[in-house]
Design a protein around this nucleic acid. Structure first.
Lengths: 196, 196
DNA sequence: CATAGAATTCCACACGTGTAGAAGTCAACA
DNA sequence: TGTTGACTTCTACACGTGTGGAATTCTATG
């Protein structure tokens, strides 16, 4: 078809590959996305993936490089004034999942974590090393339990709403969701812990 | 190696295949488990899978046939007296996930639902058709929101604790977990809904 | 005892996968 | 203006996949 050889002008091929990879990994997971499919989506020869990124694993690692910024956002929301903490955290969390640029890599991590141990480890670090380590100390004793259970609840919301799309949570109005869950998040983070 | 032909005596081959399939699907998902791997785990020729179950899809469907019984348990816990509802539900839920016979198929559904649309649909039916349909009416108006958000929270706990094994929830003492979360489940199901 | 059918093994096909390397073409710098 | 190196294409390999079917041996039914 097309002739071999370099194309004239700067060709954002490398970026196109990464974008396509993020998309494919996000909705098929590591195992489901193939290099040939990714290359096709990027309108590019499969060999270029190898040329730019080496192996599939390396490409995958590159595709997951974004969510640091997301952890930053969450940490900022979590380490503010205790007033309105629950609502602020929940809003920041939902905002992350509704911004395609950040939700993509997140979906990729989650969709892949069920199969690839590398992705699972990445997810654990994302939650554990960043959120827990930086936030737990601000929450007094039992801070790790507070942060951990909060993370579990938030993950349940994201998985139900954005990954598996289970009704009625998937199509629940965002403000209603916030109205119902924010007080619980607030309580998990700052209220009395459990029944006493 | 072994001669072809039927073996003497009743050989629980069919059951062995199903058991191996459940195990493999549970920890690799639909895509990750291969017929040859399943056959090897069952100590059986791959051809037998086709002979007994037809296609991989059919085998998968058979492997997911168990969780009806689990939905039954949850519904029974949910439709009892409102006193101690939260704790009762949470205990039943954790019991299901800690019983290998039921957690296996559940893990298979969750691990596969990220890739196979069939598994995702199954998960939605499991939660939607059974739990929601039978339980929501007992919870008054907003019953579907109550049940849906409760399901989301529970799913978050299971996913964190049993699928991704995110700390500290993964190794949290069960009684502590119940102590912290049961009141919230109770509130989601029967308490005032959200801030007013 | 004969015969139909179930259980089991093996072989083969067509396809998709990740990886590898060879060869061609252009850009940038000396 | 040459030459180096980055970019691009194609072809190929070795392997694993789900599926299909032929051949063999046993059980069960008549």
């Amino acid at each position: 078809m097309t002739q071999a050889g370099r194309r004239p002008g700067g060709s954002g091929t490398r970026a196109a590959i990464l974008a396509a990879a993020r998309e494919q990994f996000a909705d098929k997971g590591y195992g489901g996305a193939s290099l040939r499919t990714i290359a096709a989506a990027a309108g590019v020869d499969p060999g270029l993936i190898r040329h730019f990124y080496g192996s599939k694993d390396d490409l995958f690692a590159a595709a997951l490089e974004v969510p640091e910024e997301m952890a930053e956002l969450m940490v900022r929301a979590l380490t503010g004034h205790p007033d309105g903490l629950g609502e602020r955290v929940l809003r920041a969390y939902l905002a992350v999942w509704e911004d395609p640029a950040m939700a993509g890599p997140l979906l990729a991590v989650v969709r892949s974590a069920v199969t690839s141990e590398r992705a699972a480890e990445r997810l654990r670090t994302l939650i554990g090393a960043r959120l827990l380590a930086e936030v737990a100390p601000h929450l007094g004793p039992d801070g790790d339990v507070r942060a951990g259970i909060t993370a579990a609840h938030l993950m349940g919301i994201a998985v139900s709403r954005y990954v598996f799309r289970v009704e009625p949570v998937a199509s629940l109005d965002r403000e209603v969701l916030i109205g119902v869950c924010a007080p619980v998040i607030q309580a998990y983070l700052t209220g009395p812990l459990g029944r006493n």
